Simulated scan of single mutants.
Amino acid sequence: MPVLPGAEPYRREGGGVGVLLCHGFTGSPQSLRPWAQRLAERGLTVALPLLPGHGTRWQDLQITGWQDWYAEVDRELRALRERCDQVFAAGLSMGGALALRLAAKHGQEVAGVLVVNPANQVHGLLARTLPVSRHLVRTVPGITGDIAKEGAVEVGYDRVPLHAAHSLRTFLRQVDGDLPQVTQPLLLMRSRQDRTVPAADSARVLSRVSSTDVTEVVLEHSRHVATLDHDADRIVEESLGFIDRIATGDGEEGTTGG
């Protein structure tokens, strides 16, 4: 099945510091490509894979599950570790949950974690009915495109297959249980105006990780897909500062800031 224009994976070779970026549920690498490109321009080695079932048609997502999505980023992390001295895991929304699980499972093989509006659970009535409704209804309307910036478009699906949503629900519950195993430095960036993932999810992540070096950044001008929104430059700047500080062993522990 052909990949949607713009949804192709992105990889660039750079120096000894690598960054693995993970996109969100029903989205594609397109949502993180500007972030990835800016990191690559600064000499970092960057990998931004296309998760199985994504970037083509929603029917392909229907037949995949969290094990497939996690296995893909796990392979990418191992490949980066073979050619980089240090590797950071990063992600948006579900991609943030994938990055956190990589940190929990790989320990010091992950130097630090950067997440934007990380998902921690599936919310609302849909979450409670998924075990049954996924057998009765194939899809519900899509969740992509939560962007404040005029003209910005996210490449993703306009339908959410409920079998995949049920798998996401299962995965997020597992990640929540894994969070105390996350000890690496953490940069968490969250949007004040997010209409897709509530601030409670970021608060839950911050309350459960064991990291002592934690920086929280509030993005005042963006919605959920902040990497394509008004705060995209802020995300890049915060990321580069965080990676430089951790990779060089410089600076003090993180702070909470607006």
Rank of each mutant, 00 (worst) to 15 (best):
M1F: 14
V3E: 03
L4Q: 11
G6N: 01
G6E: 00
A7I: 06
E8I: 10
P9F: 03
Y10Q: 04
R11N: 08
E13C: 10
G16V: 07
V19S: 00
L21H: 07
C22A: 11
C22P: 05
C22W: 05
F25V: 11
R33N: 05
R33M: 01
A40V: 14
A40N: 12
L44I: 02
L44A: 02
T45F: 01
A47H: 13
L48F: 15
L48S: 06
L50W: 09
P52D: 10
H54I: 07
H54S: 08
W58G: 06
Q59K: 10
L61N: 04
Q62I: 03
G65Y: 05
W66K: 11
W66G: 04
L80I: 13
E82L: 13
D85M: 10
D85N: 14
A90N: 04
L92A: 01
S93M: 01
A97N: 09
A97D: 08
L98R: 03
L100F: 12
R101P: 06
A104Y: 06
G112D: 05
V113E: 00
V113P: 00
N117I: 02
P118G: 13
L125S: 06
A127D: 12
R128V: 11
T129C: 11
P131H: 08
H135L: 11
V137S: 06
R138G: 00
T139Y: 15
T139V: 15
V140T: 15
I143P: 03
I143Q: 13
I143E: 13
T144S: 09
G145Q: 05
D146K: 03
A148F: 07
E150N: 10
V153D: 10
Y157C: 05
Y157G: 03
D158T: 15
R159G: 06
V160H: 02
L162A: 02
H163M: 06
R169M: 04
L172I: 12
D176N: 15
L179I: 09
P185G: 07
L186N: 00
M189V: 11
R190P: 03
R192H: 10
Q193W: 15
Q193K: 14
R195L: 14
P198N: 06
P198Y: 04
V209M: 02
S210A: 14
T212W: 07
V218E: 06
L219I: 06
L228D: 06
D229M: 09
D229F: 05
H230C: 09
H230I: 04
S239C: 10
S239K: 04
L240W: 14
F242V: 14
I243H: 02
A247W: 02
A247R: 05
A247N: 04
T248W: 07
G254C: 05
T255A: 12
G257M: 15
